[in-house]
Simulated scan of single mutants.
Amino acid sequence: MGFGYLNPAHKNILLCGLFLRLIFGTLPVSAIDVYAPDELLVENGTTGILKCSFKSKEVVSSGATVSWSFVPEGSSESGTTFFHYAGGKPYPGDVPQFKERVLWVGDLNKKDASIQVNTMQFTDNGTYSCDVKNPPDIAGTASRTKVWVVMKESLPPNNAGIIAGAVIGSMICLFLIAIVSYLIIRRQQPRHDYEGCTSVESASSPALRPGKKAESSTEGSRCSSPSAPVQGPVIYAQLDHSGTKNANSFHKMEPVVYADIRKS
């Protein structure tokens, strides 16, 4: 079906749509996003790392560029570019304040456009701007970081050190709690008192019959020992009242109490 079968109104709408499609289809609609911290504190005389990253919908090519500019604190200037990166090469510039002090530490393949400024001084206080272009992503706004060069005493405490100290303190507390709990449990355990042992043979038991082997004193005795294991040797004793040395004579044996000797 051609345009001849459409009424004039439909033709105008269709032609308008094709015209808009042609215009917006040939223009770049993507933009590059640049990110940098709002504020940075640097100790006087030390190295400062100015972080800058970006996000682009296009593959980073050799045409990508990075520009860093600086506005001193309290100044109304528009900013002076002191560092430029293009074609895979850094260009530090000739600004006397930053001469031979700026190094490229970024990696455009990782979307990193950071730089390093050595031996930062109080005169380096101000606003630093990072601007990245990655054609055809050229529409974007530079990101700004406020840099303060201060004395060491003015720096905030290191969060990593605080966290490490808290973890170590918690571990020590748990260890002490475990030791105290163990000692309390040991102290609360019941103690068993030893009552001793006596022979179960009665003093009035009948005499042994001739020819019958005398039972071992250990077999004829019973002991109600405590639940804990015996800690020392047991001594047995029997008294002989016959007064004779004849081996064939019958000896009158008197059972006696034996005792358990524990180790002190």
Results as ranks from 00 to 15, higher is better:
D33P: 00
I115M: 06
A203I: 15
K55I: 03
T127H: 03
S69L: 07
T244D: 13
G93P: 01
A164K: 10
G232K: 10
S154I: 02
F122L: 13
V59W: 00
P157R: 11
P229V: 09
V256P: 01
R187D: 07
P190A: 02
V102G: 09
F70R: 06
S242Q: 05
V66S: 09
P8W: 03
T119H: 11
Q238C: 08
N109Q: 14
S76H: 02
L20Y: 06
S76G: 06
E153Y: 09
G161V: 09
P190F: 05
G161T: 06
H251S: 12
I23D: 00
P255H: 12
V200Y: 02
N159Y: 01
V147L: 15
K245F: 08
A214H: 08
V149W: 04
S204V: 11
L40D: 00
E219L: 14
Y128Q: 07
M151R: 10
A214F: 11
F70I: 08
I162L: 14
L22T: 06
V167C: 07
E254Q: 12
I115C: 07
V147G: 05
Q189G: 06
S264Y: 03
L176A: 14
K99V: 07
L176Q: 06
D193H: 04
I23N: 00
L50E: 03
S114V: 04
K11I: 14
V102W: 06
P90L: 01
F3I: 15
L18I: 13
I185K: 12
D193Q: 03
I23V: 14
P190R: 04
N7Q: 04
I162N: 01
L22E: 00
H84C: 02
M1P: 11
T127I: 13
D33R: 08
F98E: 07
A228R: 12
P206C: 02
C223V: 04
G126E: 03
Q121D: 12
F175R: 08
V59A: 15
T81S: 12
S221K: 05
E201V: 15
M1L: 11
V29A: 13
D107N: 15
K57N: 13
F19K: 04
D107Y: 02
P210H: 04
H10L: 07
L18F: 08
P156D: 02
T46W: 00
T218S: 14
V105L: 12
P96M: 05
L183F: 08
G87I: 12
L183C: 10
G48N: 01
K55P: 00
A228H: 14
L6K: 08
V117G: 05
V29H: 06
E100P: 03
R144F: 03
T198I: 13
G88W: 05
N44P: 00
G126V: 07
A164Q: 08
S216L: 13
G2E: 04
I184P: 01
V29C: 04
P226H: 06
Y91W: 04
K212R: 13
F175V: 10
